[in-house]
Design a protein around this nucleic acid. Sequence first.
DNA 1: TTTGGTGCAAAGGCTTTGCAGAAAG
DNA 2: CTTTCTGCAAAGCCTTTGCACCAAA
Lengths: 132, 132
Amino acid sequence: MSQLNNHSLRITKQRQIILDELCGVTSHPTADVLYQMVRKRLPKISLGTVYRNLEIMSECGIIQKLDIGGTQKRFDAAAHVHYHVRCNQCGRVDDLDLPPDFNVEKAAGQLTSFKILRHRLEFTGICPECQT
Amino acid sequence: MSQLNNHSLRITKQRQIILDELCGVTSHPTADVLYQMVRKRLPKISLGTVYRNLEIMSECGIIQKLDIGGTQKRFDAAAHVHYHVRCNQCGRVDDLDLPPDFNVEKAAGQLTSFKILRHRLEFTGICPECQT
DNA sequence: TTTGGTGCAAAGGCTTTGCAGAAAG
DNA sequence: CTTTCTGCAAAGCCTTTGCACCAAA
């Protein structure tokens, strides 16, 4: 568990359980799915608290907030960078680790049992105008 | 311009101008930005109409609806598959054409004047369970 | 105490949709 | 005429936020 910002973060039961549940799955749940999971252990928790804490924890680098398309964001306890496969039909998102140097199509086909239909590569960074 | 579904699509002034404006830019405007552009030529058009037609046109394959992260979807008149660079600061999205075989970091750095900070590769397809 | 967190509910941002009137075929 | 489309406004969905109370340090 990494360290925090300037202000001290308390380890509350809510936070602990949210993180715990997220760590306990290999899927990449949306906030509301995680909320349902957490509610089994903490029935009175609010969805707002789940969102708040997921946001905070991702800012601290404890978890990752995935913005990989679809209408809802997904969350991931794995801190390292990796790729994903999404199912067009059910929306399921699985991990996919790729070597730094690879042939996209080939590598993906070998590493997952998904039937790959498309892929999308997106870079993020600072555009020329914002660099100045 | 490709062909349509079972039901006949009419070529209305609204549709024509929306497509025209989208074709006229190399950026990947969000629906509301496109709405502003279109409004200069068609002041009474509604945002709903813009959304509706963008959706229809992307279903027909005339344009592409990009779901590449960020809160808003973006639209692109280019039908061919390609990649994108997004600016973390202003949200600007540029095209990036990559050869089928490439070294991700190197290729990207050479092809854009963005300062690349991260990249993300996402595959989509059908998961094992949905395949059966 | 003081500071930060929670639950609740309301508000926000983007997108979709129902409907009655308008327009194209 | 019939069918599709439009503008408008309302509703929907996901997420964020203000606030009063609560809890940890």
